[in-house]
Design a protein around this nucleic acid. Sequence first.
DNA 1: CATCTTGGTCAGTCATGACTTACTGTAAGT
DNA 2: ACTTACAGTAAGTCATGACTGACCAAGATG
Lengths: 101, 101
Amino acid sequence: MTDQDAIAALADPSRRAIVEALRKGAQPVGQLAGGLPISRPAVSQHLKVLSDAGLLTCTTQGTRRLYALSPDGIAALRRYLDALWDDAFAAFSDAAKGEPE
Amino acid sequence: MTDQDAIAALADPSRRAIVEALRKGAQPVGQLAGGLPISRPAVSQHLKVLSDAGLLTCTTQGTRRLYALSPDGIAALRRYLDALWDDAFAAFSDAAKGEPE
DNA sequence: CATCTTGGTCAGTCATGACTTACTGTAAGT
DNA sequence: ACTTACAGTAAGTCATGACTGACCAAGATG
């Protein structure tokens, strides 16, 4: 439910820029929008997609909402890629030995 | 050039289906198209995107072309996510220290 | 050589989604 | 209570790219 959606979420350049901005720490929406070439509503929409994908967490402080990277969501992606790499390497080894028929 | 493009390449459901099909081993284009609900030209186009992103390798055998997962390309993605996770966890730890009030 | 198989390319269509402006809601300050 | 600051939602526009049918190139086979 999440690992596939998370990849799609990271596909958009604006969303990757948001993720890169959050690597240094949590930020409110307005601050994120200030550092990006898109409007604040656009940032809000991207934050929703990233949150739904499990990549971000949100903590409310009055009218401010702090968004931060979610280690759990990123860990899920890592597990998916680890498994994919295992299969890729196994198939690579098989091909190197001789072609299965 | 590759790690970001690779994520975008994996965002499409059809391309993920191709990657999943290749987990078991290399396949020619026609066989891939036979197992998917899209036409052969569509598969060809997806294979090009995945190859350009460094996720697939292609070996030509006469008129046949065998596509296989590239361990190198997947490894590059793993490294990117590992670094991202490091930052996410560091930011999470910082927030845990400063927040409790 | 004729032809069949395999697969990449072209041109065009159509749907998805990224973006903006305008609006609404909510918490804090005066 | 009024106003200001912050942020999510709605409606509409527009560009990107996923897909198909038709065409073309190249190697195998008779």
